[in-house]
């Protein structure tokens, strides 16, 4: 029976590794990264995947080998095994296991070093993504980010943008060391309101003022590797820089390039349906054209509502 059980353990572990190897080829894998920091996150993921993969194969391999080598029979006494000859493939291990203190020190220090490395490797990436102070450094002088206010509620994202005029004004603000004007983005009379749509421009940082009106939601852009909970009663800044666009001149998504904004934190019975979209425009002009279009629809009731509704 011992052979059977070691075989079972072995095959299961091979299957586990196999699934991880095969998954990317059948499309069950991460989506491509499309933001400045996304590939850094992915690299860290792969580093951990490789390290844990090696440890997995190593430990499971040793486990299966030991189960195979030392499968016993009920009549056999423990002492008999000790006297017996070791199977060939296990002999190198024997020296290791026979000197317990050295091996114990080794298997404590080696993982400790690796784990410490893994921990340290994360710090700068994490800081660049989330520390407010790092954002200030990342945004070049005179280059204001696209600012929007995302206010989550059950079960939609309500998004507010400065209108074209105010956007132009904000773009010209020169950066200074202290507080920037775009940090204060209070509701304004002429703001543009849209639902479930976040718009951005390629290679331009986006600063989202994230808040919620009812429960905790989570602002989650898989393609941008962005995830941040929205807390009631708190405004949390979120920023990222998309490095490729996914819409054409008219603001229509390119085929196969639908980038979604699903809520990641349980927010009630409609949690699954709380999905928005991210639209990354190729140029600032495209973005402004889109903004002007929405603004016109919203303000200046020139067109009869029925026609607007039908054409929307």
């Amino acid at each position: 029976m011992g052979k059977f059980w070691s075989f079972l353990f072995g095959i299961t572990m091979v299957a586990c590794v196999g699934l991880f190897v095969a998954a990317p080829f059948v499309g069950w894998w991460m989506v491509e990264p499309h933001s400045l920091h996304a590939s850094r996150v992915d690299n860290l993921f792969y580093i951990i995947l490789v390290v844990t993969g090696i440890f997995f194969i190593l430990t499971e391999g040793v486990l299966v080998a030991l189960m195979w080598a030392y499968r016993g029979t009920p009549d056999l006494k423990a002492g008999d095994i000790h006297k017996g000859e070791l199977p060939g493939f296990i002999r190198p291990l024997a020296n290791v296991f026979n000197t317990p203190h050295k091996i114990e020190i080794a298997w404590t220090l080696v993982p400790a070093a690796i784990l410490l490395y893994l921990g340290m490797a994360q710090i700068s990436t994490w800081a660049d993504i989330k520390y407010l102070s790092r954002m200030e450094k990342q945004i070049k002088d005179g280059e204001s980010p696209i600012v929007c206010d995302v206010s989550a509620r059950q079960f939609e994202w309500r998004v507010r943008y400065p209108n074209s005029a105010r956007l132009k004004e904000m773009q010209t603000i020169k950066a200074n060391a202290g507080k920037r004007d775009w940090e204060k983005f209070s509701p304004h009379y002429d703001d543009v309101h849209v639902v479930n749509e976040v718009h951005a421009v390629k290679n331009k940082p986006v600063l989202v003022h994230l808040s919620t009106r009812d429960v905790i939601h989570s602002f989650n852009l898989p393609h941008m590797r962005v995830k941040q909970d929205a807390l009631p009663g708190k405004m949390i800044p979120v920023w990222f820089t998309p490095i490729s666009s996914n819409v054409d001149k008219e603001g229509k998504e390119l085929p196969g390039k639908i980038w979604e904004l699903p809520c990641a934190e349980l927010c009630g019975w409609g949690h699954v349906r709380m999905v928005g979209r991210l639209y990354v425009h190729e140029t600032m002009d495209d973005y402004q054209a889109w903004l002007a279009g929405v603004e016109k629809q919203q303000r200046n009731g020139t067109s009869p509502p029925q026609a607007v509704a039908a054409n929307q």
Binding site: L63, L66, Y70, A78, F97
Partner: peptide, 10 residues
């Protein structure tokens, strides 16, 4: 794993 080494696994 070390416990299994040179054991008589039942």
């Amino acid at each position: 794993l070390g416990t299994l080494f040179r054991g008589n696994l039942q």
